[in-house]
Design a protein around this nucleic acid. Structure first.
Length: 545
DNA sequence: TTGTGTTTTATTGCCTCC
DNA sequence: GGAGGCAATAAAACACAA
């Protein structure tokens, strides 16, 4: 009898050990579970039973799996919120830290999951924004992710989570990009990117984050200062961090009906970025030029009526104005466009769907060396394939629509011709010599508001299909990255530009750390290089072959 | 090959709701 | 009080770099 009991005990022990030995679900099981989970996160007993039979698992296993799956979702959501919170704090532009968005915003209502917040990431990853806003983090998004997984062969929950996390965390290639879309109210207070952030009000970040918070208040003030009287309390929300130019901006095109050509809006933006060395960013409907030269006001905005008055405050802004003026006045055949229309309701919808991509993509459009960024450079390495699609457009745009007429005093040098893709670029000597000074001129403090761009250029939206767009974005990003690297090397070969480059890089580097210092550095850069500002304002003229 | 970190699975205790 | 869910924990499985 005792032997029987002992034997049973032994069997039970073995059974327990056998059961304790966890067994991985097969891919098919996981797929079925994931599919089911997508439809119903809380299956009933019957469902569990059916699923258990179907998958040859126990109901207990099914229940456990669903339980853990929900936990996983929750954890991932928290992680994402944390990531968002970190990038909010570290994006280096504008943020209201004092509002109480705290580091533990990812904590559950029950427990504070500090283990989900790696302090190291705050210092490392945190500096490289992930480009996810809280709005992006929805169950719908997740569901979509699972749907995608369904199409894959052997997709496990592990892979799905990894893919999402990759998207979240592996976008930090370039420290210059991907600002999240947190917002401040007109008075500068933070609109928490998530409700949990709000729930955690009262806590304050400590140490590094605390410092950041205080600094970014100043950044808000700085931008307000830029906006000056055009800042309206009742106006559109000022983005805490500069939104990147939406991909639609690069996709919408400007039609030159007379010549049967289309020029991308990206061409225009690239032109300003490259030729004028400006960093252009969307800030809630405002095209903001972060080198403090000017910003282009969206005519649709409440403050737009005041724009025309401001643009005359600076000769520099007048120059920019002239660009658009000439576009509108000289080329009457050009269909008039509207920068601001990028921010109409239609765009906003699109924007919400492409937030992730745009932040990711714009990284590639943001040249770390903006003052050397031009379509000339961009084309220099192009092979003529479609990957240079916008390069050509860029130059064409510049040629046909006022770039010639607004090249100020930079004489076109016919000898400097680069022919590529049926395009001839007339390179001015200013590109080679006085280029960086455009920054310096532009950097002068003041309010520069471009006159209504909507009256100057017109977009006729020609959207690529998703796949094509994705491919182009990818390719552009790749090329841009390569181009940027190449330009860095190129620039270092030019001793005359090394100093400027260093300054630029310093600014960029500092900007990642301290947005307030960024302003100081820029100003100091201006002061340091001020004596050279008499050089001709660089501009590039273009002409078609 | 090994150490380390991450993910997944199983178990357990606590809480809430009916 | 039982069922279901959540959260914590442990441990196996896995991935990956040195």
């Amino acid at each position: 009898m005792e032997e029987v009991t002992e034997l049973q005990s032994e069997e039970n022990k073995l059974s327990m050990e056998k059961n304790k030995k966890r067994r991985l679900k097969t891919p098919a099981q996981l797929k079925a579970l994931e599919d089911f989970y997508n439809d119903n996160k809380y299956p009933t007993e019957e469902m569990k039973s059916e699923l258990a039979d179907e998958l040859e698992l126990t109901e207990k296993q099914i229940s456990g799996w669903f339980c853990h799956r929900r936990l996983k979702d929750k954890k991932m959501l928290n992680d994402e919120v944390c990531a968002n919170g970190r990038q909010d704090r570290s994006s280096g532009v504008i943020q209201d830290r004092g509002s109480g968005l705290v580091q533990d915003s990812c904590g559950s209502t029950k427990h504070v999951h500090y283990r989900y917040l790696d302090p190291k990431e705050v210092e490392s990853h945190g500096l490289y924004n992930h480009g996810f806003s809280a709005a992006d983090i929805t169950y719908g998004h997740k569901n979509h992710r699972y749907v995608e997984n369904d199409s894959a062969t052997d997709n496990t929950s592990s892979e799905s989570s990894s893919s999402l996390q990759d998207r979240l965390l592996c976008q930090g290639q370039d420290p210059y990009d991907m600002e999240p879309s947190s917002h401040v109210t007109p008075n500068g207070s933070l609109l928490p990117p998530n409700t949990k952030g709000a729930n955690n009000m009262g806590h304050k970040p400590s140490g590094y984050l605390k410092v950041k918070g205080e600094i970014e208040h100043a950044a808000i003030t700085a931008v307000k200062k830029q906006l000056g009287k055009h800042y309206r309390e009742d106006g559109p929300l000022l983005s805490v961090e500069f939104d990147t130019i939406p991909p639609e901006a690069f996709e919408c095109q400007i039609a030159d009906l007379a010549n049967g050509r289309l020029y991308s809006m990206y061409s225009v933006i690239r032109f300003f970025q490259g030729s004028l060395g400006l960093q252009m960013l969307w800030v809630e409907g405002i095209l903001l030029v972060t080198s403090e030269a000017y910003y282009a006001a969206n005519p649709a905005l409440p403050n737009s009526p005041e724009v025309s008055a401001v643009k005359k405050q600076s000769s520099l802004s007048s120059r920019y104005d002239s660009y658009f003026t000439k576009i509108s006045s000289q080329d009457s055949q050009m269909v008039r466009g509207d920068f601001g229309s990028l921010h109409d309701s239609d765009f906003q919808d699109k924007k919400s769907h492409h937030d992730i991509n745009q932040r990711r993509n714009f990284q590639s459009f943001t040249n770390p060396l903006p003052h050397k960024n031009s379509c000339l450079d961009f084309n220099a390495d192009s092979t003529g394939e479609a990957s240079a699609y916008n390069n050509t457009k860029n130059c064409r745009k510049g040629t046909k629509h006022g770039f010639d007429g607004t090249r100020y005093d930079s004489g076109s040098n016919p000898s400097d011709h680069y022919e590529e893709n049926n395009l001839v670029v007339n390179q001015t000597d200013s590109l080679l010599h006085g280029y960086e000074n455009s920054n310096l001129k532009n950097v002068q403090r003041g309010e520069y508001v471009k006159s209504k761009p909507s009256n100057s250029v017109h977009k006729s939206q020609v959207y690529l299909d998703t796949g094509e767009r994705r491919g182009l974005n990818k390719r552009m990003a790749k090329e841009e990255k390569f181009d940027g690297d190449r330009k860095i090397k190129k620039q270092y070969r030019d001793p005359d530009e090394v100093r400027v480059l260093t300054n630029e890089m310093t600014v960029a580097k500092w900007a990642k750390v301290d947005p307030l210092e960024q302003y100081d550095v820029k100003q100091s850069s201006v002061a340091e290089l001020e004596p050279r500002k008499s050089q001709r304002c660089p501009f590039i003229s273009f002409s078609f072959s």
